[in-house]
Design a protein around this nucleic acid. Structure first.
Lengths: 195, 195
DNA sequence: TGTACATCAGTGAACGCGCGTTCACTGATGTAC
DNA sequence: TGTACATCAGTGAACGCGCGTTCACTGATGTAC
């Protein structure tokens, strides 16, 4: 049952994409290799033809998830006017859609505390994703000095991650909504975020 | 080897406190009942004399951890002047000490993404802790209307949770520091947080 | 207050189950000539 | 271009291990009289 090189490469991509959804949906520890492989339409035995450990696919899935989020935010921001970049990003990131569809949402918020204790590769992928988001938002702030823009963006992204996380922890639908709306408002109110 | 009622009650407290440290340190899924019981100086077999499931102790440990944080913040804020309440809380919460000693740190940041997928009892305990923190900070804001104070505090606590989480995810010591300092500055700059 | 019995906190072994990882096998694909 | 052989993607079973939970047992504590 050997597959062609093209098929093999496509299968690998399919596994990583399925993994990025499953990890965000159920967490890293609660997602078994069997879950990933089933989601990709395979049996678990074949996993080690493509990856050498669970840690490796965690890191790759994290990078893929982050890149997908980054692309959608970069595009939304590019479509809008430059001044409203942060508002556009906040409205996209802090939506009920992001909150209620963890499989397609931000890996930093869906997996944050697990990643903090995770392997070096996963933390590195997560940090890279974070910094790319920061870069996009920094380019959208009206600050004159680039270090001010960066600082503002570091804060804005962290704040959004916290708000999305807490909106999912919150036991109460109204509170969850208040958190998302409140943070959107805080980030949208022009120039609001510090200094 | 039956113990007196006083001893039994003391043992139960010891187990919950040990659990609250171990869960924050290693995560919920990665902490076995054996780990909790060992940390409390017991063998794992006795666990079910005090609790009826792992879910139950997760919720109780979460509540204990949240209350401990709340007390220390409430006290620090009470010791300072009223106007600087948010700044005092931010400096305490966003310290390298909180970041580097997860066993004694904020359960929302240490366990956020796990709690979001957790059982009803744990989410409820986490939400209660969050709301108590919000209440403390809301009482410290100079806003005239109570709903504005609450909204500001909801945002501030979420933002701090996100910053502490990301400071632990970050792969790079300098970046980690920048996140903490940046958020402290953002929250400290008078009246800064929105509207 | 003392005695006899019931209770139950804690121990250590055991039970099932699920997980990450390994492996023999199959048969289609890739390669060497 | 065709043929013979080597490779290897994917399957399904198996291996160990750790985990949550259960249980028989012990002996100190609590209770009833």
């Amino acid at each position: 049952m050997r597959k062609s090189r093209r098929d093999t490469a496509a299968t690998r991509v399919r596994i990583v994409e399925a993994a990025s959804v499953e990890f965000r949906r159920n967490g890293i520890d609660r997602t078994a290799l069997n879950d990933l492989m089933s989601a990709a339409g395979l049996t678990h035995g074949g996993f080690y033809r493509h990856f050498c450990s669970k840690d490796q696919i965690v890191a790759e899935a994290c990078a893929v998830a982050a890149n997908s989020l980054i692309e959608s935010i970069a595009q939304a921001v590019a479509d809008g006017s430059k001044v409203d970049g942060l508002a556009i990003a906040a409205n996209l990131y802090l939506s009920t859609d992001q909150r209620d569809n963890p499989g397609g949402s931000c890996p930093l918020a869906m997996l944050g505390s697990e990643l903090a204790r995770g392997g070096e590769a996963a933390r590195s992928a997560a940090t890279d994703g974070y910094l790319k988001l920061v870069e996009i938002l920094a380019a959208q702030t009206p600050e004159s000095r680039p270090e001010d823009a960066r600082r503002k963006a570091l804060v804005a992204v962290s704040a959004m991650v916290g708000a999305l996380t807490m909106s999912r922890v919150a036991n109460d639908a109204q509170l969850s909504e208040e958190i998302l709306m409140g943070m959107k408002q805080a980030l949208t109110a022009a120039g609001l975020l510090l200094q």
